[in-house]
Nucleic acid binder design. Structure first.
Lengths: 195, 195
DNA sequence: CCCATTATGTATCGAGTGCTACAGATCGTC
DNA sequence: GACGATCTGTAGCACTCGATACATAATGGG
């Protein structure tokens, strides 16, 4: 019926994701993005419609890969407490891995005015964060019923604390990161919370 | 000897600070900045030299006012534990106060690539953060010697946790803020740490 | 009053922004 | 193999960015 796409959508999306991840939304210009994706303006606007929508697609792609793996790491641990610790270990591995595009999680990097001011982006991000928190809370409540967590343990407060602390850690890593120091403070933090 | 300045430096610096505070470094254009300050390009570059240097001056001004007040709030509390809690209360008051220019601390808002990529800005920010942490650690060590904190309490790990968590809170407030929820989780957090 | 010195207003620079118009290339269908 | 449909390359849009050139205006010492 018509001409076929000359580029592979998944490949270009993957490349775009890594660039957005590394440089942020406003920090990535359309020219840089196109260069990285290896396509022209026409192809880009034909498939993506706008930079904002492209970022949204990249965020989704990020969640279907990186974030999904993190959720898996958490859920497959024998207990919620170990799951949370596995999550932080996964974070430290990302920080140590030179192949990781950025020193910050793409979701954490999206917690800025430039991104949050775009209604569609904000909505998606809020949704993902809520989902992740709900998953963790549910898991902890299950553990609590099984007696794996003390009766005084309150998942609905602990989980926001954990995710807030993690957001802070991603930011702090931007300033300076040293594994042993991070490891130690994470351990003190989690132990204090009863995890 | 020469022509006198037509504007009041302190006033324009104050205005610039509030705009930078609200909109961030990259998010504030020179045009908006000049409009807010009520001066022209010539006057600006004559006294400030560049946007980067202007931001640095604003950061310093911010620290000499807002951040200084926060440090005072911490130090004047009867104990380090109460000081930390007073600090969080001060934060919540800022969040509640509609006169506060932004929903984020200017220092927390500076923990981005756009700012941290500028060597002079990064250096200043690192310095301030280190100073604040050292102040808190010293205070806690004093309390520890006085028996106000348990022997197992380790200030050198707890303080980074507290400041990291606070950075996370500022970010989270960008997404959604509700005082009662924040209050509750802060209390659980601090209690867990032994504060 | 002249003059060096400094401040200000205006106009503009060159580069970069996201995005679009449009002509031409390539496809499946008849 | 002509046709309509879709894709792609190029050029450029209108705008904004931070920064600067330069003429003019004010200042106070000599």
């Amino acid at each position: 019926m018509a001409r076929t796409l000359e580029f592979d959508y998944d490949t270009t999306l993957e490349r775009a994701t890594r660039l957005f991840w590394k440089s942020g939304y406003a920090g990535t210009s359309l020219r840089d993005l196109l260069k990285e994706m290896g396509i022209g303006e026409s192809s880009f606007y034909n498939t993506m419609k706008s930079k904002k929508r492209a970022y949204l697609e990249c965020l989704k792609h990020y969640n279907e890969t990186v974030a999904r793996k993190r959720a898996k790491v958490f859920l497959e641990a024998p207990t919620a407490a170990l799951g949370v610790r596995a999550l932080f270990n996964n974070m430290l591995e990302s920080l140590d891995n030179p192949d990781t595009p950025a020193v910050i999680c793409m979701m954490a990097g999206s917690l800025t005015h430039e991104v949050l001011d775009e209604a569609e982006l904000r909505e998606y991000i809020e949704g993902r964060m809520t989902t992740l928190r709900d998953t963790m809370i549910a898991r902890m409540n299950a553990d609590k019923r099984d007696g794996l967590l003390t009766a005084g343990f309150e998942p609905q407060f602990v989980v926001p604390i954990v995710s807030t602390y993690m957001q802070g850690l991603w930011r702090m890593a931007l300033v300076s990161y040293e594994r042993s120091s991070f490891e130690r403070q994470i351990d003190v933090f989690l132990t204090g919370l009863g995890l």
